[in-house]
C-alpha cells in the first residue's frame, strides 16, 4: 500500500506524530543496545577475569609470581606446563579422570535411554514415586555416602579402579540423564511410535533405528551434562582411589608442600583441567541453548 498525501488537518497531525515516534524509537533502541552491551561486557569481564589471572600465573615462574606483581607475564615461561607433561604422576591424573568420565558417560546413557523411554511413554505402578526417588539421589550429599562407598568398593575388590569411580558417579548421573532424556522424549509425538509398529518394526529395531536418531541432539546434550558433573566431582573420586586411578583434581592437592605452595604448577594444572571442558562445549555449542531447556519448553 502506498502512502497517501494527507488531506485533513487531523491526518497531518497523526502522520507527524507517527514519524516522530519512529525517530524516538530508533534513537532509544540505539542507547538501549549500548546499555545492553555494556552490562553484558561487564559481566563477561567478571567471568573471565579470574580465569585470565589463572592463565597469567601459570605462565610465570614461582619467583616472578611471588616477587613482582604484574598484569601479564614479564618473562613468559612454559616451565610449569613442561613440568606437568614430563611427570607421569601428573599427566596420568588427566588420563585417569578422562577414563572414568568416559566410562561413566557410556554406562549412564546406556541404562538411562530405555528407562527414560519408559517414563515418557508408559504409566506403571509406582512410576511417579520412582521418578522422585531418582531425583532424591541427585540430592544425596556425596559426603553422606563416602564411608560406605569406600567399604563397598573395597569389599568387592574394585577400590582404586576407574570402574569404581564410574559406578559411583552413576548415583547422580543416571538420574540426571533420565530426567533430561525424559523431557526430550516427551516432545517426540507418540504417533511416531505407533506408525513404526504398524510398519512392522519390533521395539528394539524401532528404538535404535528410528527413535534414537530423532532425539540425537537431546542425547548430545545429555552426554554434555554427564561429562560435566562427572568431571567436576571431587569427593567421591578422591575417596575411591589411591594411586592407580587417582583423578587430577586430587593430585592437585600435592602442590602444597612443606616448603610452601607451588603456585605456578597449581595454576598450570588448573588451566589444563579447563581445556577438556572447552573442547566438549565447542562440540555441543549449537545444542546448548536448546538442551538447557531440557526439552521442556
Amino acid at each position: 500500500m502506498t502512502r497517501s498525501v494527507p488531506t485533513t488537518p487531523d491526518s497531518v497531525r497523526q502522520q507527524a506524530a507517527e514519524a516522530s515516534a519512529k525517530r524516538r524509537k530508533l534513537a532509544r533502541s540505539a542507547t538501549v543496545r549500548w546499555r545492553r552491551r555494556t552490562l553484558l561486557g561487564l559481566y563477561l569481564v567478571f567471568v573471565l577475569l579470574p580465569i585470565y589471572w589463572l592463565l597469567n600465573l601459570s605462565l610465570q615462574s614461582n619467583s616472578e609470581i611471588l616477587g613482582t606483581f604484574s598484569f601479564w607475564p614479564q618473562n613468559l615461561t612454559l616451565a610449569n606446563y613442561i613440568g606437568i607433561f614430563t611427570d607421569a604422576n601428573w599427566y596420568m591424573g588427566y588420563v585417569n579422570s578422562l577414563a572414568y568420565v568416559l566410562m561413566n558417560m557410556l554406562i549412564s546413557i546406556l541404562v538411562a535411554l530405555p528407562a527414560a523411554y519408559a517414563f515418557s511413554r508408559f504409566k506403571f505402578i509406582g512410576d511417579k514415586h520412582l521418578f522422585f526417588w531418582l531425583l532424591t539421589n541427585l540430592m544425596a550429599p556425596p559426603a553422606v555416602f563416602l564411608l560406605p562407598y569406600f567399604q563397598l568398593y573395597y569389599s568387592v575388590g574394585l577400590f582404586d579402579t576407574h570402574v569404581a569411580v564410574a559406578l559411583a558417579h552413576c548415583l547422580f548421573n543416571i538420574p540426571l540423564a533420565v530426567w533430561i532424556l525424559e523431557g526430550f522424549m516427551s516432545s517426540v509425538p507418540k504417533e511416531v511410535d505407533e506408525t513404526a509398529y504398524i510398519d512392522g518394526y519390533t521395539f528394539p529395531a524401532f528404538f535404535v533405528k528410528i527413535f534414537i536418531p530423532m532425539i540425537r541432539s537431546g542425547i548430545g546434550v545429555t552426554l554434555f551434562f554427564l561429562f560435566m558433573f562427572s568431571w567436576v566431582e571431587l569427593l567421591l573420586s578422591r575417596t575411591l582411589t589411591a594411586t592407580n586411578a587417582q583423578p587430577i583434581a586430587s593430585i592437585m592437592t600435592r602442590t602444597s608442600t612443606a616448603s610452601g605452595i607451588d603456585w605456578g604448577t597449581l595454576a598450570a594444572a588448573g588451566v589444563l583441567t579447563i581445556i577438556p571442558g572447552v573442547i566438549v562445549v565447542y562440540f555441543v555449542r549449537n545444542h546448548i541453548a536448546k538442551g538447557f531447556a531440557l526439552g521442556r519448553t
Binding site: 580465569i51 589463572l54 568431571w231 567436576v232 566431582e233 571431587l234 588448573g270 579447563i274 572447552v278
Partner: peptide
Amino acid sequence: MLILLTLPLLIPWNVVGSIW
C-alpha cells in the same frame, strides 16, 4: 557468549576454589 558462559560450569570444583 554461550561458550564463555558455560566455562565456569566445567571447571572441577576444587579448581574453582584454587582459581579464587
